[in-house]
Structures are given as structure tokens and as C-alpha cells.
Design a binder for these strands. Structure first.
Lengths: 334, 334
DNA sequence: TTGTAAGCGTTATCAA
DNA sequence: TTGATAACGCTTACAA
């Protein structure tokens, strides 16, 4: 039971594209159609449209987790930009498990998504072949890649800038609470960035002063506890993510340590809380929502057949707040 | 160019349903099919399947925002449960704007979603008719409704329990930083819950001691500043959400006020941070992820034609921490 | 500019 | 149990 041919010409009013090449239909006809649309409350069936046009107007996004405010913000930005262009967002998360990420990708690809947004460059080896086979443009967020379209920043360099800053204010014994580096290029690069920056200064990142913890407040506390238990405890602790740094901050308080007096703490992300909390968290600002918005643009343009820049860099910046300060003069304190 | 008829019988291997009624095909035939599937790397086209079966195996969810950790957690729970059942999640947000929510709903409905998850009971009047017309089962999260399927809790009662507690430890001058009550039944009910609880005790909620602020840390600070500027300042401040309470906590610190010594502060949500921060935030625990998981179950069962409970209540509980204590004896202090 | 018909890749129905 | 054949509601190409 089809709607009148006329009505069929009109499409979903919430989207912005012209259903029919403008000018290919005369005003009176168009009006007649619009009237029918109104009267019948007609809404095009996107399902049929997708099958026939081989375009679903749906983008897929797979993130490690939505429980991390930084990814939630990225998805929020992506969704908003997509909605503005008549696209819809299919979302999935994998809890930092690349096998699961692949499974999710297969499902989304099977759903006919027109494009895919992924976080970072570590993925299941089969993933790339899958997206290629489906012909769905893919873009990696939160990273910059030489051989795959990406929108993000250089994690190593950003982390290095943090280490450089800590070095510049006098820290020599620096520790790090890194995120899980296995299957996570961002965590790995941030750790390596800190290591490299210190190495360039002639300071080594003591392996014992590096702990790896899952992202979480509790884990941050734990990591901090471990570092503070070291005999030669670091005077500054760089964290792979703000949540880890918040945990470290709380643990320092529990331990009766003054921040930044006894120990400096720095994070990565600049969550809204970073500016409000305790001494104010020194961190690296990541424009999560912008990454999402740029990813939307990027994908939509590629879907339209346009050529776009392979790597789009978004700005990150070191934000110095009260949680970091020069270390106590050697010998004094403690 | 179709795949062999045999292969066509087999469906996406990542989902769990039986493509063909078990037993309706003999083992040898089935094996022949599976072999073909493997060889060709066949993956059913969900788009065509959706058109033909009128079932997309996709659920839509529209939340106010993903930038609020509590909703992000709910969506995470929903997504996880859905994925386990072979369903996929289409998501949208509306920034607390019901017109936008309706627009998003129309788009998702047009996409052929099999079910819809919405937050609260305040919606655009047209929304209900739309979902009904499409025949898509809808469930409201974060609330309990008498006439619409819902999964959540009684916001008024939960807020009242918080007020009762504040009253029980001696507070009589209680203030509130509520969320925007327009178009938001949860914010409204929480405010009314506090008001009613105090009224039952013979204490009135002074209108001047009630400020309404958008959900955000900065807004919480502002609200707290306003309340503390009152000549007869409240001895306890109930907040409509944890983020507001965190802001209030930070502002109290800026103001040089001791919490809970000078003023008690309570929140609503029990975000992970509540247990870690400053004095520990007294709050109402909301099982966000559970709401999402239950919503997934609920929708899937209704889609399958099963009859399910109209209202499913999830437990909330008052969590008392260090941010609340009996008020200073009248006359002392200040 | 408008109308018509042939797919799009499944599901569903009905014969065989 | 298997095979064939309509839908499903659009888009697209082509004819009028």
C-alpha cells in the first residue's frame, strides 16, 4: 500500500538535503506534494531508502567506553555535527578490548553504516580489511596517523610537553601513572613521549617509577600509593589521563602529602573538573568535542566523494594550574 | 548478483538468533550452507533484512546530554545489554530541549528503530503519537510513570529521603540548588520531594533559599554563592545533581566555609567522584547502568511480543558521607 | 518536467 | 525439507 507517487518524492523534513534536484519540479507540483506530505504525515522510510540508495545516512562510532567523560564529550560533538547534516549515529563500546571492537565493527558495518569513527590506531588486524571491503570511509580519532585518515593530535608530543614543563621547573625524579599500554597506542605514546622528553634532557625515566593502571579514580589512587612507597620517591607524577590524576590527588591528600609542596601531579585531558578541583590540575587540554565535530565533517565529505586531508590536527595545550610547582630544594623537606 | 540461495539462508554470525527454525533443515544441507558462507565471507545485509522483515534490530535512545556522566553510564549499560542480544544502538541528544528531542525522535523512528529509550516523562506532546504511529515500543528511563512503560525510581521520594535525613540530623534552614525545572520532570520532582518532606515536618522550604541552575560545576558554584549570600543562610544545601553539589563544595571552599562544619551539602546521583572528593559527598545513589540494562531487556521483550511490567523500579539509596553533619548549635559560630 | 519500471538483498508465503 | 516467487518502500535510469 504505497503513498501517492507525488508524496513519495518528498523526504524526511528533519534533514536538509533536497530530495529532488532543485528546479527539476515546478512550484505548483512541489506545493501539491508538500501539502500531501503534511496531510498524510508522510515520513520516508529510511530503511527502504538505504537499501535502494546504498546509503544509510548513518555513521558508526566505536569508543573504548562512554564512562570516560572525554569520550562522551567526543561522541556528543560527533552526534551534534552529524544531526546537523541529517546523519544519525550508531554507537558501540568495547572496554579496551580489540577483539570486541572488531565484533562491534562487523555488526555496525553489517548495518550499512556510511562511515566509521574509531579511537586511536591500535585495532584488530582484520578490522581494516573489513572496512575496506564494505567500502566505508573510516577515520581514527584521538591520534594522528601517517597512513590512515585521522583527526587528533600527537600523543607523544603532547605528553612530552608536559614532561618538558616538569623538567623546566626543576623536577628530575619524575614518575608516571600510565594507562594500560597493551592494545592502546594513546597510552603507549604518552608514556613514550614522557620518556623521550626526559631522555632528551639527559634524565632517565626510572622503570620503577612507572606504573600502569586501568583508567579510574581508584586505580589512580593505587598507582600513586605505589609511587609514593618508593624509597626514592618521584617529586612529580605525570598521569596518562585526568581520572588517574584525580585519583592521585586524592591519594596524596590521604597520605598527608601536600600538592604541589611535597609532590607535583599532572594529568591529561583537562576535564571540567580539572579547573575546579583542589589545587587545580596541571594537564594537557584535549578538544574532545572538536575531534568529534571534525570527524563528522571529514566523513561526510568523504562519503560525498570529496578529497579531504588525511590527517587533521586539533590543538592541545599545556594548562598549568596549582598541582605542579618546583620541587623542594634537595635535602630540605621530608 | 545474488549469493547462492543456500548461502542466503544463513545470517550474520555475530548475532545469536537462529536464522532458520532449528530442525527445518537437515544437517548436510546446513553444513553445505555454512561452508559456502565461510568461503564467500558472506554477511547478511541488515539493510535489506530490515526492509523485508520490518525489524531493524536497532534501538534508539535519546538523552538530554552525554556530557553528564550519569547518562553516559546509562547509555553504556543499555548498549552493552543490547549488544549481547544482537541489537545495535542509535543515539541522539537534545540538550534539554523537547522540540529538539521530538525532531531527533522523528529521525530515529524514520530510521526504523524497533524500540525507543527516552529519559523522564516530560516530552513534546506530539512525541507519543509519533511513537505510537510507528508502533515502536517506548520506555521511559529515570522515572516511574503510571501510564507509560518506565524503568526508574520515584524522584520525589528519593529527594524526600535526603531532606528527611537533613531534617533528622537537625537542619531546619535548608536550601536547594535545583536543576532547571521547566520541561524536566526529574528536576521538578526532586525539588517538590524536598519541599514536601520538609512540609511534612512542619518546616517550609523558603523560596528565597531555592535557586535553579543549569547542570554544571560552574552553575553549582554560582548557586552556592547565591545561597550563602542570603542573610539567613541555610545550614544545609540539597542539590538536584552531583555536579551541582561538587560545584557547591568547591564554592564553599573558596568562600572559606567548612563543610560540613559551616554548611552541609548533599547531591544526587552518586557519581564515582562523590566517594572520593573532599569530605565525601552525601548523595542519593542512582543505578544508571542498571536502568540501561533493564531498558534493553524490557524493549527486547516487548518487541518479541511478550507482556512486561509497565513500571520497573530500580533501587536508589541514601548514601551518607562526610559532607553532611548536624548544624552548629544555634547562636554559636559565625 | 513527469511518469514508469526495474532493481536493492532480504523475508515470507506457498508449492512441490 | 526444499525451491520459487512475491513483496518490503525506496532510488535510479529512462522514456514520454
Amino acid at each position: 500500500m504505497n503513498v501517492t507517487t507525488a508524496a513519495k518524492r518528498r523526504r524526511n523534513s528533519t534533514t536538509r538535503e533536497t530530495p529532488v534536484p532543485s528546479g527539476s519540479v515546478r512550484a505548483p507540483t512541489r506545493e501539491r506534494v508538500e501539502a500531501a506530505v503534511q496531510r498524510l504525515g508522510y515520513e520516508a522510510d529510511a530503511t527502504a531508502r538505504a537499501l535502494a540508495s546504498r546509503r544509510s545516512h548513518t555513521i558508526g562510532a566505536i569508543v573504548p567506553t562512554l564512562d570516560d567523560a572525554i569520550f562522551a564529550a567526543g561522541i556528543e560533538g560527533l552526534q551534534r555535527a552529524l544531526a546537523g547534516e541529517g546523519y544519525t549515529l550508531l554507537i558501540a563500546s568495547h572496554e579496551y578490548d580489540l577483539d570486541q571492537e572488531l565484533a562491534q565493527a562487523r555488526t555496525l558495518l553489517g548495518r550499512g553504516i556510511d562511515g566509521l569513527f574509531l579511537i586511536g590506531k591500535d585495532h584488530h588486524p582484520e578490522l581494516r580489511a573489513r572496512t575496506r571491503a564494505r567500502g566505508a570511509p573510516t577515520v581514527l580519532g584521538w591520534t594522528l596517523s601517517a597512513d590512515e585518515p585521522s583527526i587528533g593530535f600527537d600523543n607523544a608530543r603532547a605528553a612530552a610537553s608536559l614532561a618538558d614543563y616538569l623538567w623546566s621547573i626543576g623536577h628530575r625524579r619524575i614518575g608516571m601513572i600510565a594507562g594500560p599500554t597493551a592494545e592502546n597506542d594513546r597510552a603507549r605514546e604518552r608514556l613514550e613521549g614522557v620518556r623521550a622528553a626526559l631522555a632528551r634532557r639527559g634524565v632517565a625515566l626510572d622503570p620503577r617509577a612507572v606504573v600502569e593502571r586501568a583508567y579510574g579514580l581508584e586505580e589512580g589512587r593505587e598507582g600513586m600509593r605505589a609511587l609514593m612507597a618508593l624509597e626514592d620517591r618521584p617529586t612529580a607524577v605525570a598521569c596518562g589521563k585526568d581520572v588517574l590524576a584525580f585519583g592521585a590527588l586524592f591519594e596524596a591528600a590521604s597520605l598527608g602529602l601536600d600538592v604541589p609542596g611535597d609532590v607535583s601531579i599532572a594529568g591529561f585531558d583537562d576535564l571540567p573538573l580539572a579547573a575546579q578541583i583542589g589545587p587545580g590540575l596541571t594537564t594537557v587540554g584535549v578538544p574532545a568535542s572538536l575531534i568529534g565535530a571534525r570527524a563528522a565533517e571529514h566523513l561526510i565529505r568523504r562519503i560525498a566523494g570529496e578529497t579531504v586531508a588525511t590527517a587533521t590536527e586539533v590543538p592541545t595545550r599545556l594548562i598549568v594550574r596549582g598541582s605542579t610547582a618546583p620541587p623542594r630544594a634537595r635535602g630540605s623537606g621530608e
